[in-house]
Design a protein around this nucleic acid. Structure first.
Lengths: 237, 237, 237, 237
DNA sequence: GATGAATGAGCGTTCATTCAT
DNA sequence: TATGAATGAACGCTCATTCAT
């Protein structure tokens, strides 16, 4: 079960037996191993991204890739192996790009800026890969996403309103604020959820510390943080 | 596994023996509808949270709840129905709490602060419900979360380092910075991913706008935003 | 399993205990046994006739009859018992009527005529009962009736055409023949099928005898038969 | 139960032992698609004919055919699909034969005669197929056919007696009449039921017309009908 | 007397996986 | 080499039936 997919990627072409007489029967004229593998990954990646792991069957993948099921198993060992291979390919691309565009020589904010740009560029150019990593499309229709979706929407709703009101109080153009507040609210909520997830893996820390971290990250800003600025809860809160 | 469901039935169990009278063979406990419903929701919620929707079978839920499968169907109609009921219960609690603790009369930062506190309190007290909404625990130990997990870790890694270096450059206590940077990095990455997801539902906007939004949210901070401060990319970037 | 339904029909009213204090709770104010039984039979008969035995559940019958399932079981013992009771009621009515209208004092053809009239009157007045005995309605939609239906249609088609042509050859008004031929063809086909079924229970007789019987019944007519007329196959056939 | 399906696979079974090598455990016979299909149809047709659609499970069919359930599904898609395939095969044969033996060049009565012969020949040679199309055998030993069976028997009884009496009155050999009357009575009853079924699909016509049709069909005979003879009810009836 | 609550057993269907060729 | 043919195991769901009250 170990390393089935990657170990097969090597340059050793199939076998020395050249062309057999009955080779034309099946119609696929000697596609080299690499190409086959890529074709399968493409097809599987697309299907997984579209409908999610469980809703796609190996039968379907094999058929869509134009090969027989035993082929898929020969190349990737199992459904998990195939899925993992798809994901790995996607992840690799993203990470490589990220590290490339953020050399240490740049100022901090520019590094962040470039990293962000790279991420969104990746999303734009590899929507499938992104959907594979962070599935939130039609796949999670049905009852699955409804939970998170409703909770997200509720939290974002509270926050959106808060941002809008705050901006209004400060005299910011309410139209601009209105437009900006929704995506920012979603980003904020995601940050909250993300820190929550991190916390479930570090449960020894107190919750107030998490809240404080988020305040300083999201309210004061990373820029402020690195400048030594801090937000502290008012005494009465 | 601690006999949560059946032990709650009360002391008047008729089958003489202790709790596990072969499930409910012939001496059926005759628990009133409401109670059974809650028991089932508890059990199912826990299992779904632990291992995810697809990895839990109705057979298992029924067994764990100490009832037969037809009971589960009589109460919730289908697996989806049961899942939805679990999720709804979880969502409802969180949302209600959130709206309660953020009245408009408070200052903006205090509202955010209290909301954050509430969220983390919810996580602490209803870990299962949280895992149901945002599954990222051992459930996804399968191949599923590995994709997101690795990508997250990679992005967070890049960012963690960046934060640490930035703090170092600015003369901040590196130990403090080291401790803070990892969770903050995760929150940041989650915000990026969250905005990415939002963007996939609003693809008409340019990617630069998304990156800019995140810079101003995460680098300058919401507090800065509402004060009218803005981050703009340096001309050469 | 034997005689469950009919044995309960007796005049012994429920019990001596008169009205209990909690009697009003369920809303059904002491319906006597006979009436209950009839209500259930009515409801079940209708449902069975509409959708067939297998497509109707005891749950549904009990609910539609406004009683609980254990009641149905108390009255009829089992689903089969209930079905049988429905059918028995229907059969009884038909048979009784038939014997009534065909006394020996009448001429033979009039006896047949009156019997036929009685049957069609029964169909008209007890469509449900008829459908219970000879289910051929929407119930047998789906794949089940398609077999018989297609075979019937094919045989009737062949025959319809034959009758039409024969009438035409003999100078009978073709319009009249056209109108008559289809139902007659169906009756003929049914007679063939019916004799076929009878034959499967008397397989010792040769097939030619069956065909000959049908020729003399359907071609020469019963009237001819009782007059001693006979049809015999031409030598060359 | 006579090992019909697996024994037909041919002598080159690889599993060494006789026919029943634990179903098809590991040494799978690898029968070509067409052959397997026919085997399955044979087995399923027999079971359906013997016991009816609902009383036969896919498990049982697969087992009896010596294959696993997924095979059955791979070949026929669903239980309905399998049933339909069985029925279609049966129907096709009958219809084809019928049309073949009744060319227009023959005299009318000979055409009918030959058609009848063909039908009974079909019954004789394909008893299963017939039982599939017109199930009235032990399958309906359940409660289902009892209704129709009893009603049929009762109507046929009345009629049998009537025919016998009529023959006696006319001086026909009572023994002959006795032998003939029962099957003829069943055919007659079937014709009545058949026309009744037709009528339920054409309810706008009056019942008297149906009765009249049957009188002229069954009493006067088709031969009489095409000769222009008619039976009309006596004025006093 | 009548019911709400409960279940054992089974059904049709699907899927990841693997021989035998 | 690549495949057609095959399966074990399980899943979601339903139903006739029956206690315990």
């Amino acid at each position: 079960m170990a390393g089935t997919s990657t170990s097969a990627t090597g340059p050793e072409t199939p076998s020395g037996g050249s062309v057999r007489g009955r080779g034309a029967g099946t119609g696929r004229p000697k596609v080299p191993r690499r190409v086959r593998e890529r074709e399968m990954l493409d097809v599987a990646g697309r299907l997984f991204a579209e409908r999610g792991y469980h809703a796609v069957s190996m039968d379907e993948i094999a058929h869509a890739a134009g090969v027989s099921k035993p082929m898929v198993y020969a190349y990737f060992g199992s459904k998990e192996g195939l899925f993992l291979a798809c994901v790995e390919r996607a992840t690799g691309r993203l990470i490589a790009t990220l590290q490339e565009v953020t050399p240490r020589t740049l100022p901090h904010d520019v590094r962040v800026w470039r990293g962000l740009l790279a991420v969104f560029e990746f999303i734009e150019e590899h929507r499938e890969a992104w959907a594979l990593l962070y599935p939130h499309g039609p796949q999670s229709a049905g009852p699955f996403a409804q939970g998170a979706a409703r909770a997200n929407a509720a939290m974002a709703g509270v926050l959106t309103e808060l941002i809008r009101e705050a901006a209004e109080d400060e005299g910011i153009d309410p139209l601009l604020a209105a437009e900006a507040s929704e995506p920012i609210a979603h980003a904020f909520v995601a940050a909250v959820v993300g820190l929550g997830s991190w916390w479930t893996r570090h449960p020894e820390e107190p919750k107030e510390l998490q809240a404080l971290r988020l305040m300083n990250f999201a309210w004061i800003g990373l820029g402020g943080l690195v400048d030594g600025r801090l937000w502290l809860p008012p005494p009465e809160a």
